[in-house]
């Protein structure tokens, strides 16, 4: 297989895997920027090792036992408590490790599914799918590492806003896929959904500014 043919054959796996790597990188970056880098990076390495064992021995495994919202909720609460006390966390950050571990393991398992699906046609298809996934992993991880520093300068609430919009977008996209809905352009629909979610969120913030011009601490939970 020449390089051009390999590149064309690897493209579907590259795009699909890139989506998964972006999901994992988003969560690891969000945890790292808000809680410190050591724990999420350890979680990421542990997840990569677990994934290697799973793929090498068991093939694929389902890891969706602990709801992500629960872990992220605990983590937000802990951060708020520590800030209220004017303290910094000194003991090992287990929540940060678990959130990153789970995100990387789950998305990594999905990448394994993608490679198996695209590579099922034969040896050359498997080779192309693996190259596509590896290229996506290298590029997304490299980009995540590159923006890691500048990201710390982004206000935390803006970061949460963007991460929330991205997780909502991926949730909508994958639920649609799961129930058999067809998205025009498949994964290319994701930026359109993201734009709609961001526009809606921005409009909602403007709406709240009009309803409560004097400002108020408004949470969805207080409905």
């Amino acid at each position: 297989m020449d390089l051009t043919t390999l590149a064309i054959a690897a493209t579907p796996s590259f795009i699909a895997s890139a989506v998964e790597f972006v999901e994992a990188a988003t969560i690891v970056l969000a945890v790292g920027v808000t809680r410190g880098w050591r724990a999420p990076l350890v979680g990421t390495v542990l997840a990569a090792l677990t994934l290697a064992v799973i793929v090498g021995t068991l093939g694929v495994a389902l890891v969706n036992y602990v709801p992500e919202r629960l872990l992220l909720g605990i983590y937000k609460r802990e951060v708020a408590e520590l800030r209220a006390q004017g303290l910094k966390k000194t003991e090992w950050d287990w929540v940060g490790t678990i959130v990153s571990y789970k995100a990387v393991l789950l998305e990594g398992t999905e990448v394994a599914f993608i490679v198996i699906s695209f590579g099922a046609k034969g040896v050359s298809a498997m080779s192309a799918a693996i190259w596509g996934a590896v290229a996506a992993g290298v590029i997304v991880t490299g980009l995540a590492a590159a923006i890691r520093g500048p990201l710390t300068a982004v206000p935390e609430n803006l970061l949460k806003f963007i991460v929330g919009a991205m997780l909502t977008t991926f949730g909508i996209f994958w639920f649609g896929e799961g129930v058999g809905a067809e998205w025009p352009g498949d994964a290319l629909s994701i930026p359109v959904i993201l734009a709609l979610v961001l526009a809606t969120s921005w409009a909602s913030v403007r709406m709240l500014n009009v309803i409560v011009p004097e400002g108020a601490h408004v949470e969805a939970r207080n409905v």
């Binding site: 909502t168 909508i172 639920f175 649609g176 809905a181 959904i193 709609l196 979610v197 809606t200 969120s201 409009a203 909602s204 709406m207 709240l208 309803i211 409560v212 108020a216 601490h217 408004v218 949470e219 969805a220 207080n222 409905v223």
Partner: peptide
Amino acid sequence: LVAMVVVLIVANLYRAGRNA
């Protein structure tokens, strides 16, 4: 689904804003 999520977000925040 996208449309319903958009409506849910706006309706929920509108109500939260009115309550606040």
